[in-house]
Design a binder for these strands. Structure first.
Lengths: 322, 322
DNA sequence: TCTGGGGATGAAACCGGTTACAAAGAAGTC
DNA sequence: GACTTCTTTGTAACCGGTTTCATCCCCAGA
């Protein structure tokens, strides 16, 4: 037999209302009754039924997560975000359900949805609007609440770091597919180079697959084709790890001859990797905050989470002129 | 203003009860009233509130998923299972919530939990039992409902395939950490070798990391240490992919000189890879079936899902004696 | 002493459904 | 024609909480 609020009320000789007030602490309750009710609750091991609570409070305490088909769920980055979200939700006593690709027939048991930016985002946002469910996007998108890392600032940070270490011959390894974040990182990077008054800056960009293997190939092929950068900026840490592998195979010293700088800050991927680190816990925190704040209201807020440089051991001063 | 069942009842000039009966189809309703009510529902775009329904039906239509910290969420295998589960849940109109590591303070908004087998499983199962929530495990465990692939049978299948292709000098690449599935695959494999009456069978086992890179190292090192198998059985496809890479780098022909057989059937990982394939959709289906069947009852059922051989292009007859 | 204000509490409505039960007709049986 | 039985439907209780409103009580101030 399940213990209900009524049972608590009876045993504590108070009304359901009082017990409810004790639970929620919204209204004042005499200290002695409060103690008493709490004691009874503890004695009986009472836990309020979340479903009943949802019904009367008209909020489901549930956040849906919608992951696009294009999103690479296998990437360490996605994984970290996902787990950070889980932790965040736990702190907020909110549960998270993952929505299937096609939500047109899903009953809305969530009060807000977090969307991972990817192709076809517009269609799904439209669908949500129809159903009156607010959405928060992880990534950039006009006209909707989003939270994203400072990709462009990160690109600039990378350029500044490399330049200040004396590097003048730079290579940017990035992904071939057209995604906003890659574009922003590249834009930030090249804008600094273009705006710099330092003499003798050379820079090239090559594009490939966003994986360790992809990074390996990019670096190896670029080197074999005669590129001789002293500083390599990789659009993701996975690419950077691959690049490091290629340089090792080519017998190139890191950071003696070449410095390698990644993006994302996934230190566990390769200890010592220098990287423009995203603040993943902060992104998760912001995303959930925005989402919870959006329930019921109709506000649009965009948040950019700052990035920071992890120096690591793959980044060093440019070698003296050869 | 939200459309409720009462509103439908009013507009259709019937009682709430009748509308409910139309929705659930449990009890008989005159055909003409049914049509009428459905028409009103459609006209107003009515959707029953899932929370209210959960409250009165005492079932949450929600399945919790609990992933151990030890589980490798980055593995393609995990990813496939996860997505298969999502699809399966969608079909059954059930939602899935992922539970955080520590559920001791999570309010139970689910009627059953699916647990991914991993270290410390006993403790968490105990926790669930206390809360009266049934659990179904993906993997093997005594005394609880589980569903798992036929690891041992798969090991046997691998051995039989290689033997029947004439291979006598075999190498098994597997993971160093002690997990049940790896043990079972190895046991199945070696039991066939041990039980075979064929002459001249040699077999070795080496253990390493369960990743592409791990497989690469295992294969390369084994070869450099003088192992000269003609058939290699890898405990996972990722190891197999790594092994293929190493063999390519060593200049060994596949399948001319060496055949490579993986396990899991992740064809997208490496087209043409021969593998003992798990039936992942079937596992997901069974897991969800068992889980839904376990709600309210207290039955224990264990299901083993058969595996099948994918021949691929990395498996061939043993070379003529050198 | 009378009055007013504020804190503590209980009663009851409400959230949006499901379902046991009863009642009203319709149809079938003897 | 009276009695059964079956189908269809309405009524009201219920699921387990929250919340509004009214009431009661106590104490300060005039």
């Amino acid at each position: 037999m399940k213990i209900t609020i009524g049972e608590i009320a009876r045993q504590a000789s108070v009304s359901k209302g009082t017990v409810s007030r004790v639970i929620n602490g919204k209204s004042t309750v005499a200290e002695t009754t409060r103690k008493n009710v709490l004691a009874v609750m503890k004695r009986l091991g009472y836990e309020p039924d979340p479903v009943a609570r949802e019904l009367s409070m008209r909020t489901k305490h549930t956040l849906g997560i919608w992951v696009g088909a294009g999103e690479n769920r296998l990437s360490p980055y996605f994984n970290l975000i996902w787990r950070a979200l889980l932790r965040e939700m736990q702190v907020r006593a909110t549960q998270v359900v993952e929505l299937p690709e096609d939500i047109s027939h899903v009953r809305t048991r969530f009060d807000v949805v977090l969307v991972f930016n990817s192709d076809g985002v517009d269609g799904r946002l439209e669908l949500l609007r129809e159903r009156g469910v607010p959405a928060v996007l992880i990534g950039h998108h006009p006209g909707i609440s989003c939270v994203a890392p400072d990709d462009m600032g990160g690109g600039r940070l990378a350029a500044h770091s490399l330049l200040s270490l004396g590097h003048r011959n730079l290579l940017h390894l990035t992904v071939a597919c057209e995604v906003q974040w890659a574009q922003d990182r590249a834009d930030g990077f090249t804008s600094v180079l273009a705006g710099s008054s330092l003499p003798g800056i050379q820079a090239a960009t090559v594009k490939g697959e966003a994986s360790v293997l992809g990074g390996y190939r990019l670096m190896r092929d670029a080197w074999l084709q005669g590129h001789r950068p002293t500083g390599v900026f990789c659009a993701t840490d996975e690419i950077a790890v691959g690049a490091l592998g290629a340089l090792a195979d080519l017998g190139v010293q890191v950071p003696g001859q070449v410095s390698v700088l990644g993006f994302d800050g996934l230190v566990e991927l390769h200890p010592g990797l220098a990287s423009v680190a995203q603040n993943i816990p902060a992104i998760a925190h912001q995303a959930v905050s925005l989402a919870l704040a959006a329930i019921g209201k109709d506000t649009v807020r965009q948040t950019i989470v700052p990035v920071a440089l992890i120096e690591g051991t793959t980044l060093g001063p440019a070698p003296k002129v050869s």
